[in-house]
């Protein structure tokens, strides 16, 4: 009897009905968690029956959305609803035991929504690398199409070799740009300056 897990997206308006249905069907409440994303806060309600663990996801909530409490159906959820309110500033209406924002003794409000500089830098770096990779792939595809058309029209080996070398040089430049985009800006500036100096030296300036 292996554990089966799945994630089901649901709308906020359908949450109460869904939870009532789960209770009626004999699902056990497992937990509630929140995830901070660029599009808002995602709430994930987990339920288990036999060996099936299902997670209902309400996506993209803001602190102006009012989320209905599920403590009428599952009293044990009061711990998690208070936690989500304190750590993520999600407004939940009708919690059976409501601590009014004092469940955790916190230094700052909604600490889990604060994006750290490290996290921001890592995300930007990943986005730049992904964008550069995508651009490179698009360019390769375009070059491949053009090369095939060129070969069909002229069939000249020397011209093909020349365009191949040019494409290779462009590829190298793209790779380098992708690497620089992912680097610390100060370090990237130093690398660029060193490369320019080397290019000047090679030209004999």
């Amino acid at each position: 009897m292996a554990l089966e897990t799945c994630f089901n997206p649901i709308e906020l308006s359908a949450l109460s009905e869904k939870v009532k249905a789960r209770k009626a069907e004999g699902w056990r409440f497992v937990q509630l968690l929140a995830v901070n994303t660029d599009e808002g806060i995602d709430l994930i309600y987990s339920f288990m029956k036999d060996n099936v663990l299902e997670n209902d996801e309400v996506k993209g909530l803001t602190n102006t959305d009012i989320v209905p409490s599920i403590t009428d159906e599952y009293l044990e959820a009061f711990v998690f609803e208070n936690e989500v309110h304190d750590l993520f500033d999600i407004q939940i209406k009708g919690i059976a035991i409501d601590f009014g924002g004092h469940f955790y003794k916190l230094h700052e409000k909604a600490p889990m929504t604060v994006i750290s500089p490290e996290q921001k830098a890592a995300k930007e770096k990943a986005a730049k690398i992904a964008a550069a990779k995508k651009a490179k792939e698009a360019k390769e595809k375009a070059a491949g199409d053009a090369g095939a058309a060129d070969e069909g029209a002229h069939g000249k080996a020397d011209a093909q070799g020349e365009s191949g070398a040019k494409a290779e040089a462009e590829d190298k430049q793209d790779d380098l740009e992708a690497k620089l985009a992912g680097m610390d800006p100060e370090k990237a500036a130093k690398v660029r300056a060193a490369m320019e100096a080397r290019a000047k030296k090679a030209k004999g300036e």
Binding site: Q31, L33, Q119, A122
Partner: peptide, 19 residues
């Protein structure tokens, strides 16, 4: 997509048994 996770959650048995 990075070496860091976007979210890690641990729901412990005590949270569940408080009620």
């Amino acid at each position: 997509g990075t070496k860091n996770l976007a979210r890690m959650r641990m729901r412990t048995p005590t949270s569940q048994n408080l009620a």
